[in-house]
Structure formats: structure tokens, C-alpha cells
């Protein structure tokens, strides 16, 4: 029998949450409203702007194109989970130092996309950064600050290794 509500157990930023959700509830709404993690932003709800990007089991996904029930049992990282022990992630630092944001609405999505990008390609060219981040829209920066930030983070992270 189909159920009006489903129980889910979802780990977000290391914390496990048990909730009842309607199957149609978008993961983006679940994170923002049910868990009150407001850092994940919603800019289009049709998969193009990338503002809602989170990491699911280590991969970037559009949280507006998934239902919360589908994340049952999954591990999710949102922007709130990027800084560890009060210390900014090197990408966050680089965005801060290189003026990688203006209004900051797109920023959480960019940061998580950039995380995956650098994991797959720790030493990207500028062109690769642009292509790698083409799934995220920014309307403020003209992208230059963002691209410079990611390149700066890449060299910093390489140096740290």
C-alpha cells in the first residue's frame, strides 16, 4: 500500500535525522524547512541554476530534482557542513580572499560543485574550471572572482598535500 508519509533516515553533515515526509517533498525543501538548514538555496527548481547543489554520498546532486524519500539512508553534505571545527574549507577561504561572491546566493552551490571539481581534477586549468562550474549560475560576479577563487584554492590545496 502506498503511504501518505514515509519515514526517512538521512545523515546530513554527520548528524542523522529521522523524519516523516510526504513522498513529493523535494530534498531542497526537506533540508531547508524540515531540518532548518537554510544554507542550501533554491533559484529555479528545474535543475539549471545549481544554487541547490549538495553532495550526496560524495557526489554533487541538484537537491531540487530529488525527493527527500530518495535520500533515505544517504549521507548528505550541505554548505553548513563544509567548514570543520570552526575552520573554513580552503575553498571557502579562497572565495573570501579572491572576492568570489557578491550577494552570496549562488555561493553554497558553487562551493559544493567546486569541491567535487577539485576532487576529480586537483590541478585544473582555467578553462576546466569554467567548464566544471558551468552547471552553476551566478548573476553578480561575471564569474571572474569565482574562477580565480577556485584556481587559488587548487594551488593552496596542492601545496598543503
Amino acid at each position: 500500500m502506498p503511504q501518505a508519509y514515509r519515514s526517512v533516515e538521512i545523515t546530513v553533515n554527520g548528524l542523522t535525522y529521522n523524519r516523516q515526509v510526504e513522498p513529493r517533498r523535494l530534498l531542497s525543501d526537506f533540508l531547508r524547512e524540515d531540518l532548518d538548514l537554510r544554507g542550501t538555496h533554491v533559484g529555479c527548481e528545474h535543475g539549471i541554476c545549481g544554487a541547490c547543489t549538495v553532495l550526496m554520498n560524495g557526489y554533487t546532486v541538484r537537491s531540487c530534482l530529488m525527493f527527500a524519500v530518495q535520500a533515505n539512508g544517504a549521507e548528505i553534505t550541505t554548505i553548513e557542513g563544509l567548514a570543520k571545527n570552526g575552520k573554513l574549507h580552503p575553498l571557502q577561504e579562497a572565495f573570501w580572499e579572491n572576492h568570489g561572491l557578491q550577494c552570496g546566493f549562488c555561493t553554497p552551490g558553487f562551493l559544493l560543485s567546486a569541491c567535487e571539481l577539485l576532487e576529480r581534477n586537483p590541478d585544473p586549468t582555467e578553462e576546466e574550471v569554467r567548464v566544471g562550474l558551468s552547471g552553476n549560475m551566478c548573476r553578480c560576479t561575471g564569474y571572474q572572482g569565482i574562477v580565480e577563487s577556485v584556481l587559488a584554492a587548487a594551488s593552496k590545496m596542492k601545496a598543503q598535500k
Binding site: R32, L37, R38, G39, T40, H41, V42, T78, I79, E80, L82, A83, L88, Q92, F95, W96, E97, H99, L101, C103, G104, F105, T107, P108, L111
Partner: peptide
């Protein structure tokens, strides 16, 4: 000076306050 922006820490960590928040 291009000092680092004061508003960035909250925006970088998902702690900004937008209306929908």
C-alpha cells in the same frame, strides 16, 4: 584597499539571512 569583505563569512558558511530563511 581591497580588504576582505565583512559579509562573506556568513555567506560562505550558509548562515546568511535571506527572506526565505
Amino acid at each position: 584597499q581591497s580588504i576582505k569583505r565583512r559579509e562573506d563569512p556568513r555567506l560562505l558558511t550558509g548562515r546568511g539571512t535571506f527572506v526565505d530563511d
